[in-house]
Design a protein around this nucleic acid. Structure first.
Length: 424
RNA sequence: GUGGGCGUAGCUCAGUUGGUUAGAGCGUCUGGUUGUGGCCCAGAAGGCCGGGGGUUCGAAUCCCCUCGCUCACCCCA
């Protein structure tokens, strides 16, 4: 006897009951994305490590210590994707040489080797959308609106979208210099984490939750000051567009992102039912991403990703999740008494499934009739088809309506016809 | 990577200052009905009390180690 094999930490099974809820969420999102003109792209889960080092960023926490990285048989370094955007850009560059605009969305598992927590798994699922090839701020507004629409379409209209601009690639050098200067002067007052951030990602200090740091952050020069005139005018236009489109959002001057490629517009959507990991999704513009993959021509883009687990958590924190779970039971349950009857039911079920498209299920392990009827009742099936020695002798089946309790004998063919008649 | 909380039946959980055969509810199975569900009644099965070591006459209970889950820090979706 050996010990049972368990799943890996932070990687869990999604059982059928819960999967129906996933399917519902995915279905609603696909509809919203389709209406916004997005087509689905599916990229490999495994990529060259270099893809993420060059895009997500060598300095980012994600690349530095959260990737599942290993060498393949030929010694190449591979990584399970920690996020979707780099793969999408890679696919875009290799398929759209002319730089034309595309709108692509993806859905699937991502991997980060962090300590698991509420709303944070090691294998988690993201739904992301990318609009590549356009520089228009109107597209930024569309994407932010889409972020909100996805939330409201799955019953989370209370989600809050936070928007900010972190400046163009050129502005960022100035911004980082400005902040680095300020925070270095106040280094003594910063927490240990922020001291570390001073060396790596200065912007991250802005959203430190530590109270000591808050006071210092209050006095920090606003990012907006270091953004060029044109950048500020463009951001004002975005805000105006969001207002006029009645997209609920809030300006958040301290909002920053953890991935290296973001420039200009950034946003995040939060939900307060989530606990510490309260971001349902986040995104931004990434005008230099293509460049980091060796593309010479300018290929701007903007996109975001939503955490499916987090959306599910927020939905389940509210009401209505149970109704969604109830779906999925069979239409007809088979009750068989004796091996010959089990065979007759097996054959009949195949016929009904193919002719009527009904969901038919039964138990073939010789349980008592009482037990089988209980299973039928519990399954949620409306109909029960009973077959035993008597029916076999007469060449009929018993058809029972579990709702009314009535039952009658019919031939196998008539049972198909009558069940067909109950469908609209 | 750092810290806190929790590991007892398939599930949710009780279990007294350490004390004799470790309990409940739900679920499962059987019977009350020759072959009929929900409600009810009766009964049964099901536990290395996460694992290992220690203290003790005696450990689910106390101590140490370990593994797992979970929440928070960090990070991010």
């Amino acid at each position: 006897m050996s010990a049972p094999v368990s799943s890996l930490p932070g990687m869990s099974d999604i059982l059928p009951e819960e999967a129906t809820l996933w399917q519902w969420v995915e279905g609603r999102c696909r509809e919203v994305l389709r209406n916004a003109g997005f087509g689905e792209i599916r990229t490999p889960i495994l990529e060259r490590t270099d893809l993420f080092v060059r895009t997500t960023g060598e300095g980012s926490e994600v690349v530095q210590k959260q990737m599942f990285t290993f060498d393949d048989r030929s010694g190449r370094s591979l990584s399970l994707r920690p996020e979707g955007t780099p793969s999408i850009m890679r696919a875009y560059l290799s398929s759209q040489g002319d730089g034309g605009p595309v709108r692509w969305y993806y859905m699937g598992p991502m991997f980060r080797s962090e300590r698991p927590q509420a709303g944070r798994k090691r294998q988690f699922h993201q739904l992301g959308a990318e609009a590549i090839g356009s520089e228009s701020v109107i597209v930024d507004a569309e994407m932010i609106g889409l972020t909100y629409d996805l939330c409201s379409s799955v019953g989370l209209p209370e989600a809050v979208v936070l928007v900010n601009s972190i400046g163009s690639a050129e502005d960022q050098a100035a911004i980082k210099g400005l902040l680095a200067g300020y925070f270095t002067d106040h280094r003594e007052a910063l927490c240990a984490d922020c001291s570390r951030r001073l060396e790596g990602n200065v912007l991250r200090i802005l959203d430190c939750k530590n109270e000591q740091c808050q006071a210092v952050i209050e006095g920090a020069p606003p990012i907006a000051e270091a953004i060029g005139v044109e950048g500020r005018r463009e951001f004002d236009r975005l805000i105006s567009l969001l207002d006029r489109a009645a997209i609920p959002f809030r300006m958040e001057p301290r909002l920053v992102r953890g991935l290296d490629y973001y420039t200009r517009t950034v946003w995040e959507v939060r939900h307060d039912a989530l606990g510490a990991q309260d971001a349902l999704g986040g995104g931004g513009r990434y005008d230099r991403l293509a460049e980091s993959l060796g593309q010479k021509a300018y290929r701007p883009g903007v996109g975001f990703a939503m955490g499916l687990e987090r959306m599910l958590l927020a939905i389940q924190a509210g009401k209505g999740a149970q109704d969604l779970r109830a779906e999925g039971g069979p239409d007809v349950w088979l009750v068989s008494m004796g091996a010959p009857a089990e065979e007759a039911n097996f054959l009949w079920a195949r016929e009904v499934r193919s002719k009527l498209g009904l969901s038919v299920q039964g138990d073939f392990d010789g349980r008592s009739m009482k037990a089988q009827m209980r299973m039928a009742n519990r399954s949620g099936a409306r109909w029960v088809v009973i077959c035993g020695e008597d029916e076999l002798a007469k060449g009929v089946f018993c058809l029972k309506d579990l709702q009314s309790g009535e039952q009658w004998e019919v031939s196998g063919q008539d049972a198909v016809v009558q069940l067909g008649g109950t469908q609209e």
